[in-house]
Amino acid sequence: MYEEWITKMPSSRSQSGGAVTWISIGVLVPICILSVLPIWILIISSVASTESLASFGFQIFPSEFSWEAYRKIFAQPDFIVRSYSVSIAVTVAGTLAGVAASALFAYVISRQNFGGSNFLSFFLFFTLLFNGGTLSSYLLISNFLHWKNNLLSLIVPLLISPFNVLLLRSYFRTIPLSLIESARIDGASEFRTFRSIVLPLSMPAVLTVGLFTMLMYWNDMTQALLYIDQQYLYPLQYLLYKLTFNQSIIPQSGEQYTGTIASPLALRMGMATIALIPIFFSFLAVQKHFVRGIMLGGIKGD
């Protein structure tokens, strides 16, 4: 639909700079190895036996393996499944709503001729500096809104991140003014301009912010800690945190305590691994759309 105003053309970066390319690869490969190694160790440690962890610490390839950690975590699988779906629901809803609201707002404050852009930027940024504390937020959400044990408490308070909004503002400001003017001449409303011109041109930025928002929701644990008591509403991260925490409290349970003990360390790693899986997949999905700049046809002499 936006083809009226812009045309996609194959990106054509230069063919020169062979040396620079090799330097780039030369620098990036070691850095990537350093980034991958800890994740690998994390995942593999979740299947390492207690003995090997105790004797040799973290190894790239453990001397002994054990599925105990996962056996412990999945002892009650219906909980894990349930919390997975809670987390997915919260993340999807939060990301869509959050990115939508943030992008709209960012567009508004990116418009140079908008009277309130400085004021609203300040309005947003100020919240980064001052914080009322957990107590006030709790009073608001629990006593005033009555959102305890309600998924809304996990989603709504976190929708807007000032950092993401201001990032989007910067990205939006790079859109050439002439494009927006041309849309205006055609009689488009501000919303139309946003939806049809600015948004498509800013896909990498919006996807980045979407990714960050998604990660934030997926990893968040504090909201659940404060506002959710009912087990069937626990998001994944919180359930896993609770599981590991319980393991480290002295059971003092007498002779009936049966079964082998999973290494608490392996348990922690297992918990981290499980939480990571959806992130990897969605990351790959987002990557597909992270494409090089769209050529602007029809606009010359900018």
Binding site: T50, E51, L53, A54, S55, S248, I261, S263, P264, L265, R268
Partner: peptide, 13 residues
């Protein structure tokens, strides 16, 4: 840390 100590203690190290 507590976690690592747990490991060491349960394997007799």
């Amino acid at each position: 840390t507590e976690m690592e100590m747990n490991n060491l203690r349960s394997t007799g190290k």
